[in-house]
């Protein structure tokens, strides 16, 4: 059952990865990467249960936090980049 869940998560990650490649806007890519991050959090948790090592949950927890901060940080970066481009044009 754990393996099936992991397989579903990986399949969904591939789909999100396809969206990250396809774009078309920066925001689509950020959304897709954020989505992959959420799926990774779940995948790490499930992998921890597959291998019988619940310590994986600490990594999962950390990943959830980093994923959020990374999304906000990239968003800020893109926003500032856009503002600068507007000023120049």
């Amino acid at each position: 059952m754990f393996l099936a869940a992991a397989a579903a998560l990986i399949a969904a990650m591939v789909l999100a990865l396809a969206r990250a490649f396809a774009g078309p806007t920066v925001y689509d890519r950020i959304l897709a990467v954020n989505q992959i991050g959420t799926q990774t959090v779940l995948l790490i948790a499930v992998m921890g249960f597959i291998s019988g090592r619940p310590d994986f949950l600490d990594i999962s927890l950390l990943y959830a936090l980093i994923n959020f901060v990374a999304t906000i940080a990239v968003l800020r970066y893109v926003k500032r980049d856009r503002a600068r481009a507007d000023k120049q044009s």
Partner: peptide, 29 residues
């Protein structure tokens, strides 16, 4: 419960690929 969760994760993945624009993609996400 895990099976239901895996199903919804898959639906989210399909939705993010299928929907026409960013805002509609956010709903399956």
């Amino acid at each position: 419960s895990i099976a239901i969760g895996a199903f919804f994760v898959l639906v989210g993945g399909i939705g993010i690929l299928r929907m026409p624009d960013l805002f509609t993609r956010m709903h399956p996400a």
